[in-house]
């Protein structure tokens, strides 16, 4: 078991990040923190892919370097996913700005109170 954990430490870390991200998204009452939780969650997935591409003793996938190379495809995929993640964060923050402008609060509980008073 220990052995398994030691050789799979990257996967362990990535699922730890998924867990932390999920927890923050659910438990945090502040919207900005929820978005941070979402980012942590996504980072966990990025790490998962990159870890999968890793090859013991291999070089980065650049042609001038000697082989063996680590698998380049996951890197490309995750580059795309990071871009998507950034766009999502931007949109989310934009909404949070609007919520703040409208209700003057960033926490869920206060928002409930404000909206019930509507």
């Amino acid at each position: 078991m220990i052995d398994l954990l030691a050789t799979r430490d990257y996967y362990l870390a990535s699922f730890l990040l998924l867990g932390v991200g999920t927890y923050v998204m659910i438990a945090a009452r502040n919207f900005v923190k929820k978005v941070i939780g979402m980012n942590i969650f996504q980072t966990g997935i990025f790490l998962f892919f990159i870890a999968a591409a890793y090859l013991e003793g291999a070089n980065p996938p650049v042609l001038t370097m000697d082989g063996p190379h680590v698998s380049p495809l996951p890197h490309v995929l995750i580059l795309t996913a990071i871009v998507v993640g950034v766009a999502l964060t931007a949109v989310a923050l934009g909404m949070i700005v609007r919520i703040y402008a409208e209700y003057g609060t960033l926490t869920e509980d206060t928002l409930e109170e404000v909206r019930n008073g509507e």
């Binding site: 919207f31 978005v35 979402m38 949109v91 989310a92 909404m95 609007r98 919520i99 909206r115």
Partner: peptide
């Protein structure tokens, strides 16, 4: 905006 943020998350 609140609905959209929830949807987004």
């Amino acid at each position: 905006a609140v609905a959209a943020l929830k949807y987004l998350l």
